[in-house]
Amino acid sequence: MTDTTTPDNQTEPAVVLERTLPAHIDLVWSMWAESEHFAAWYGPTGATIPTAEMDVRVDGDRKICMEVQTPDGPMQMWFVGRYLEVERPTRLVYTESVADAEGNVLSPAAMGMPDSHPETTEIIVELTTTDDGGTHLRMTHVGVPADSPGAAGWTMALDKLEARVADQAV
């Protein structure tokens, strides 16, 4: 497992994480492209995904609900976006914005984020087959600083992805 949070020649802030997974590239692709798999691993530790609507094709929409437990009860965060590139099984690019439950994009300030946080960010997933038949994953989230809570969330999410892939690969 390798985690990298420094972008290569990037002018915008970005989280860049890399992992080498002991699973075939088709299985890893399905973790990103099939809602049942995505919902099982996405989000930080303790988060659940009650809604994962994903039309994985160029210009297809996505709508994700992430729920976390707080002392005041469950809190839901909604994300919407659009698929920009779909190159099965090696590359997936989509946008992401914070939204309300109806899918209306919310400003970062409305969610308590800094004014400098962009309204729309971009996630780039790149998969390559390793020499031993596993898969190298490189995930870049453009617009999210490497030292942000979002980076920590992605690290936890990829830990969950790694565990899910291990369970599915056996």
Rank of each mutant, 00 (worst) to 15 (best):
S116H: 01
A151T: 13
T129V: 14
Y42A: 09
V86P: 06
F38C: 06
L84S: 02
T140S: 14
T70K: 08
V56I: 15
D147P: 01
A40V: 14
D131E: 14
R82C: 13
R138V: 15
T51L: 08
V15R: 07
A47N: 05
D132L: 10
G43F: 06
E34N: 12
D8S: 10
M111K: 08
D167W: 05
R138G: 03
G143L: 02
A39T: 03
I124K: 09
D55F: 08
T129M: 08
D72G: 12
T20H: 15
V16K: 09
A23L: 11
D59M: 10
T70V: 13
P108W: 01
L21E: 07
E12C: 02
T11D: 13
M111N: 07
P89W: 09
T90A: 05
M66V: 13
G60L: 06
D167N: 13
V144I: 04
T90Q: 13
D131N: 09
S35I: 01
L17Y: 08
S116G: 00
V80P: 05
G43A: 07
T2E: 11
F79I: 05
E119C: 02
V98L: 14
A47Q: 11
A101W: 00
V56D: 06
V16N: 08
E53L: 08
A110H: 03
G153D: 02
G81F: 07
R91L: 09
D8F: 06
R138S: 04
A146Y: 08
M1E: 10
S30M: 09
P145K: 02
A47L: 04
A47D: 06
D147N: 12
E85S: 06
F79V: 04
V93E: 00
E53H: 11
V86D: 04
G134D: 11
V144T: 04
M139C: 10
P114K: 05
V170R: 12
T140C: 04
